[in-house]
Design a protein around this nucleic acid. Structure first.
Lengths: 331, 331
DNA sequence: TTGAAAGCGCTAACAG
DNA sequence: CTGTTAGCGCTTTCAA
C-alpha cells in the first residue's frame, strides 16, 4: 500500500501538496496536479481509510447486530442494509447475538470502540425478556446513531423500523373469513417472542371482531419442539379446521407438506397463509399464500434513517418509528 | 468516548503513564495503577480501535465477499465465519457481489483501503466466467490474506476451502443405485455454475461406472426459469423415473412438493436426494434426504485458515486447499 | 503555488 | 517509577 508520504518523496514534493492535488484543491498548479495524479494512478495509491477515520472522527461504517443470521428474515434485512449502505459509501460490520443478551451487549461494546458511526439492531429474545438495555444506553451516551428494527423496545428512545405484526395476521385472518372459512387454526414456532404473541393476538382479535369465538384447540404451538412433524400430525388427526394462519416462515411449509401427505383429500379445502416472500413461496406447490414483511425494505429503510441521522447534523429531531407496510399475497 | 488524553488530564499524569497502567506494565507503581484503572472504569474508557489499527497497522477485521447472502448456503458460511472471527477477536465486514464482477472488484478495492487484514471470498458467476482476477491479484500484491471458498479458481494461488462437488453427487447417486433405483433423474437450478456442472458430472459418472447409460431426458434444467413449477410438472408427465438427485437446495423441495400433488401414487417409490441441512430438511415431510455441505464449518475453517496466516508470521508456507467432508443423510 | 506543522488516539523507545 | 517524544497516514490551517 503506497502512502502519501512515499508518493511525496518520489515526486520531490511535500505530503500536503500531494494530498491537496489529489483533492483537486484550486491552489495547486495544474501541471503538478497532473504529475501527482499520474503518479498516484501508477502506484495505485488508495487513501488509507483507517487514517481518515481517525482524522475526521468518522468511520463510515455501520454496525449491525441481529439475533440469528440463519433466519431468512434477518438475512434479507441484512441484504437490504448492506446494499443501501454500500451505495451510500458505508461499510457494514455484522455481529450475531444468538438470542443472547451477553453476546449482544458484547458486540455493541466492541463496535463502540471507535469502529462504527452507528448501529442497526434487532434485539435478542433474552434482551427483551430481561428488559436490560444498558448497552443501548451506552450507544446514546456515546452519541452514536441507533436504529432498532422488528424486535424493538419502547424503553429506548431512538429511530425504529417495525411492521404492524398484529395487523398483519388480523388482515390475513379477515381474508380467510371473507373466504367463508369457519374454523381457522393458528400455528407458531415463535410463541416465545413478543411479535409471536402480537401475531397470535391479531388472529384472535380478527376472529372476535367477526363474531367467532377463538378456539384454543385450534392453536398449535411448535415453539422449541424437537419433533414438530409429530405435533402437526397429531393436530391433524385430532382437530377439524378449514384454514391455517402461520406466525412464521417455517411452520406453514411444514404444515402444508404434512397435510398433503396425511390428509390429501383436505388440501383443496384448507387455505393456508404464512409469512414468506416471493422467492421462498416458490418452494412449495401449490404456492403458499403469504404475508410479505418486505424484509429487504426494512433493512434499506433502517440504513436510510441511520445514515440520515449521521449526516444531517441539523436533524436533532425527535426519533421516528417507521411502520413498514406489509403485503398479503393470495394466489 | 473518553480518550487517554482526557483521562491523563483528569489524573494529572501523562498519557503514556495511563496507557502503560492500563496495560499492566510492570514499571508503574501499584497505587497509581489502581488509581488510573479506577478512573478508566469510572469514565468507562475504551481504547479507540481505529487509532490502534493505524498505530500497529492491523485492523483485526476480515472482509468477506459473497455472491448472494439470501442463498442459505452463503448465509450459513457467513454464520460460521462471524462466529469464529468474533471468538478470535476479529470483526467481520461483509459485502455482496450479486454475482457481478464489478461489484466484487469494487468491494475488494474498498476494503483494501486499509480496512481489513484479509479476505474470505466466494467468487461471483461473472468473475468465474470472465476469468478476470485482477482484483484478487491486488490482494496478494498488498500482502493481505486471502482465502477462497466454494467458488474458487486455480488461477489464484491462495488458501482454499472447497467441497468435493463431484464426489457428493457421485456418492448420492451410488446410494440410489444400491437401493435398486434404475431411472435416476437430475434436477438443477445452477447449471450456470461450475459447481453445478461438477455435480451433474458426479451423477453421470456414477451412472456410467455402474453400467447405466445417462439418459439426457432425465436431466431437468431449471436454471433461471421464471416458472419452475411448470417445467417440473411437464417433466413429471413426460418421463418415468424412480429417483431424483437435486443439485441445489431449492429444486428438491419444489420437486417433492409437486410430486406429492400431481403424482401422489409415486411418492413411495421415488427417492429424492438434495442439498440441505438438518434444519431446512425439516421443512418438508417426509424429511427429504440430503447432502449436507457443512456450510458453517466451511466458514469456520476459512476464518481459521485466514487468521492463522495473519498471525503466524512464520508461516510463509505454501497455500493449502482444504476439502470439507460432506455428509449424506438418508432417513 | 507550495510547504511546514499540528493533531486525530494510541503505543513504545528512550530519558529523566 | 513517570514523562517526553516520535510516529502510524491523513487533512488542514497558516506561513512562506
Amino acid at each position: 500500500m503506497v502512502t502519501l508520504k512515499e508518493l511525496a518523496k518520489q515526486l520531490n514534493v511535500s505530503v500536503s501538496t500531494v494530498s491537496k492535488a489529489l483533492h483537486d484543491a484550486k491552489d495547486i498548479g495544474e501541471d503538478t496536479k497532473k504529475r501527482i495524479k499520474e503518479a498516484a494512478e501508477l502506484y495505485n495509491y488508495r487513501p488509507n481509510k483507517t487514517a481518515l477515520a481517525l482524522k475526521v472522527n468518522k468511520t463510515n461504517t455501520i454496525g449491525v447486530v441481529v439475533p440469528d443470521i440463519l433466519n431468512p428474515f434477518f438475512a434479507k434485512v441484512l441484504h437490504g442494509i448492506e446494499e443501501y449502505a454500500t451505495k451510500k459509501g458505508y461499510d457494514t460490520i455484522i455481529c450475531v447475538s444468538h438470542e443472547q443478551l451477553k453476546k449482544e451487549a458484547k458486540s455493541v461494546d466492541l463496535m463502540l470502540q471507535g469502529r462504527v458511526d452507528g448501529f442497526i439492531i434487532s434485539l435478542s429474545t433474552e434482551t427483551l425478556s430481561r428488559q436490560d438495555f444498558v448497552h443501548l444506553d451506552q450507544i446514546n451516551l456515546n452519541k452514536k446513531g441507533l436504529v432498532l428494527f422488528d424486535r424493538t423496545t419502547s424503553e429506548i428512545d431512538c429511530d425504529k423500523v417495525v411492521i404492524n405484526d398484529q395487523k398483519s395476521t388480523y388482515d390475513a385472518t379477515r381474508i380467510l373469513i371473507s373466504k367463508k372459512k369457519k374454523r381457522i387454526a393458528f400455528v407458531s414456532t415463535i410463541e416465545d417472542l413478543s411479535i409471536g404473541l402480537l401475531r397470535k393476538g391479531g388472529y384472535q382479535k380478527a376472529l372476535v371482531d367477526h363474531g367467532f369465538e377463538p378456539d384454543p384447540d385450534l392453536v398449535l404451538d411448535l415453539t422449541g419442539s424437537q419433533h414438530p412433524h409429530d405435533l402437526i400430525k397429531a393436530f391433524l388427526s385430532l382437530h377439524e379446521f378449514d384454514a391455517v394462519i402461520s406466525a412464521d416462515n417455517t411452520s406453514s411449509l411444514m404444515f402444508q407438506s404434512i397435510v398433503k401427505s396425511e390428509k390429501p383429500e383436505l388440501m383443496d379445502d384448507i387455505m393456508l397463509i404464512g409469512f414468506s416472500d416471493e422467492k421462498s413461496a416458490l418452494l412449495s406447490y401449490p404456492r403458499i399464500n403469504y404475508i410479505d414483511q418486505k424484509a429487504s425494505k426494512i433493512g434499506e429503510k433502517a440504513a436510510d434513517m441511520l445514515i440520515q441521522r449521521l449526516e444531517d447534523k441539523g436533524s436533532e429531531n425527535k426519533p421516528i418509528t417507521f411502520e413498514m407496510p406489509f403485503e398479503i399475497h393470495i394466489s
